[in-house]
Simulated scan of single mutants.
Amino acid sequence: MQFFANINIKPLEPSISYRDKIVLTGSCFTEHIGNFLIESKFNALQNPNGILFDPQSVASSLLSYIENKAYAENDLFYLNEAWNSWQHHSRFSNIDKEACLNAINNSQQQAHAFLKHADWLIITLGSAFTYKLVQGSAFYVEPNEVANCHKAPAQNFIKHLNTIEEIITTFDTVIHRLFYFNPKLKIIFTISPVRHLRDGVVDNNRSKARLIEAVHHLVNKFDKLYYFPAYELVIDVLRDYRFYDVDLAHPNYAATQFVLDKFSETCFSQSTKELVEEIKKIVIAKKHKPFNSQSSLHKKFLQQQLEKAKDILQRHPYLNLEEEIKYFSKG
C-alpha cells in the first residue's frame, strides 16, 4: 500500500558543487536551506537583508545589492526605542543609529561583492502580500513598500495582494539585471511551505497560488532558472499536521529534514553528496562534549578527527575547515 503521493523531481543540471558560491534570500524557510548549506561547509551567504517574505521586497533587495546601495540616516526611522529600516529585518535594529546603519551597509557591501561572483542564487518566496505605508502617516517615505512592519501600528499600512502579472513584471526586470551583473549566475526558485495563517486559510492559498504561477512562468521563460518544489513536498507529499509545529504553520524538524534530503538528492552530484556525509561527521565530532577533556581517550579522539579533517582538506583545498582544524588541534 502506498502512503505518499509520488513527486518526480528532475535532477538539477548542472548540479551544485562545493566549488560554487551560493546566495540565498527570502522567507524564513530560506534559512533552513541556508543553515544546512553553511553547516555542510558550502560557500554560502544568506539573507543579507534578513528574512523577506514578498516578491517586491526580495526584488528590491536584489537590485540594491547590484547597485551596491549605501543607506543613509534618512533611510532609518525610530520606533520602540530602536532605529530600524523598512527594508530590513529587525536583526539590524539597534538603539544606536550609527551601529544600525553600519550593520546594514556592511551587509550591503558583502552582498554586492558575493553576488557579483556567485554561481547560484536561491530565492524562497513566502507570501504574495505586500505592505505599503499610508500616505500622510507619520512614517511615510518614498518608495512606500516595506519589507518588515517592525510592529508599527496597523493603521500605518495598506495590505496588497500582488497579482500574478505584478510578480512576473517585478522579477522580469530583476532577472535581466542579475544576468547582466553576473552572467554566470543560475537561479533556483522555491515557495515556502510555511502557512501564513494570519492571512486566513483562503487568502494564504490565494497568495501561494499566485507565487507558484508567477515563478513557473519565469522558469519557463528564462534559461538558467529552476524550480525546487519545497512547498509541494510538505503540502502534497507529507500532507499531515503531524509534520507541522504546534502553531500549525511552520513545518517541524521531520518535515524540514525531508525537504533538505530531497534538495540534496536532486541538487547535488553523487560526489558532492558523499562529501557532505564526510563533512557532517567532522561537524558532529566538533560538537562532541567530552566527560574529561584531559583524558588520553579524548586526546586520541581529537587527533583522529584532526587527521580526518586534514585529509578532507588535502583532497578539497577550496573548503573552509579552519574552525574544525583549530578545535581538533587542541589535543
Rank of each mutant, 00 (worst) to 15 (best):
V58C: 09
G26K: 07
N49Y: 04
E31V: 00
S60G: 06
S27D: 12
E31C: 03
K41H: 11
A44Q: 06
F29A: 11
P48E: 06
T25K: 02
N43M: 01
L62R: 14
N35S: 15
S40F: 03
L24R: 03
A59D: 09
T30I: 01
G50Q: 03
G26C: 08
S64P: 00
I33N: 15
N43F: 04
N49E: 08
F36N: 14
T30V: 03
F36G: 05
Q46T: 13
N43L: 02
L52R: 10
S57L: 05
S60W: 00
I33E: 13
T25Y: 00
I38R: 11
P48Q: 05
L62E: 14
L52P: 07
G26R: 09
Y65G: 10
E39S: 15
H32P: 01
F42A: 12
T25N: 05
T30D: 06
F42I: 05
F29N: 07
S64T: 09
A44N: 12
D54E: 13
S60A: 14
V23H: 02
S60Y: 02
A44W: 00
P55Q: 14
Q46N: 06
Q46K: 15
T25R: 01
S61W: 00
I66Q: 14
G50C: 04
C28G: 08
I51A: 10
Q56F: 12
I51Y: 07
D54A: 10
V58T: 07
L37Q: 08
V23I: 13
V58S: 04
S27R: 01
